[in-house]
């Protein structure tokens, strides 16, 4: 098998005395989709945020595209250009138009010309079916539209890995579909490598190549394919799946 795009080795994190992540280990191949499942508030988002340096961690390391990353020696600004992230609260910059939101980082960080960045941005807008909104401000968009723009904004940096942190959790139910379809399309058409924290179990089952089930900051189950949903190993996972009612 090829070298994994991302390997997490013995990662642990504490807030002061309280340990929130215990000895996390996993690896991800290029093009794979991993879903992180588990009850709320047990460290899934924290783990995701450790992967692009929004949270620090005390021990362990990441290997991303062959580069070893430790909490204290990481050049996160450079890594984040390759690791895109989309958040729950579709936090577009309210002072900029949709087009400016998408082109800000390519122009300022990657030093692309404005024309080049705008052309790429318009392609992305077409792709997320929001071409008509290039010059709109975020406040004029619905939640689902904002979230699709947020995804387009992350894609504009051409990341090799995308992190999705409960991106549908604060959307109206009828908006959820469009966002999930877009993520699915990214996997199927672009072969994008993704780690997805979600509570949408049907979606997770459809898209997952690998499932990580966490509780209390520990990986309880790590399953390839869809086995997790049909054949969970731990009682905790069985209870969790039963409670999700899908």
């Amino acid at each position: 098998m090829a070298e994994p795009i991302l390997t997490v080795k013995n990662l642990s994190k504490s807030y002061g005395e309280q340990q929130v992540l215990h000895d996390i280990n996993f690896s991800l191949q290029k093009g794979e989709v991993m879903t992180m499942l588990g009850p709320s508030g047990i460290g899934k988002s924290t783990l995701l945020r450790c992967l692009n340096g929004l949270e620090d961690f005390q021990t362990g390391e990441l290997v991303f595209e062959g580069q070893t990353v430790k909490a204290d020696n990481a050049n996160w600004q450079q890594l984040r250009q390759k690791i895109g992230m989309v958040f729950q609260s579709y936090d577009l910059f309210p002072n900029m138009t949709v087009l400016q939101n998408i082109t800000l980082a390519p122009v300022k960080v990657q030093k692309k010309s404005k024309a080049e960045a705008e052309q790429a941005a318009r392609q992305l807008l077409k792709r997320v079916q929001l071409s008509d909104y290039a010059n709109s401000y975020p406040r004029e968009l619905s939640g689902g539209q904002k979230q699709r723009i947020a995804i387009a904004r992350a894609l504009a940096m051409h990341p090799d890995l995308m992190l999705f942190d409960e991106v549908t959790a604060s959307l109206d139910p009828e908006m959820v579909r469009s966002v999930l379809d877009l993520i699915k399309e990214l996997s199927e058409q672009d072969n994008m490598t993704m780690i997805i924290v979600t509570h949408e179990m049907n979606f997770a089952r459809q898209i997952a190549d690998q499932v990580l089930f966490l509780d209390q900051g520990t990986i309880l189950e790590q399953t390839a394919g869809k086995d997790f949903f049909t054949n969970p190993q731990t009682q905790r996972a069985k209870d969790f799946l039963a409670s999700m009612d899908f």
Binding site: N52, G53, L54, W76, Q77, Q78, R80, Q81, G84, M85, F87, D91, L92, F93, L104, A105, K108, V109, Q110, A150, R153, A154, M157
Partner: peptide
């Protein structure tokens, strides 16, 4: 807002 900016590599 800060985090989403940082996550883009700013």
């Amino acid at each position: 807002q800060q985090e989403s900016g940082l996550a883009l590599g700013l």
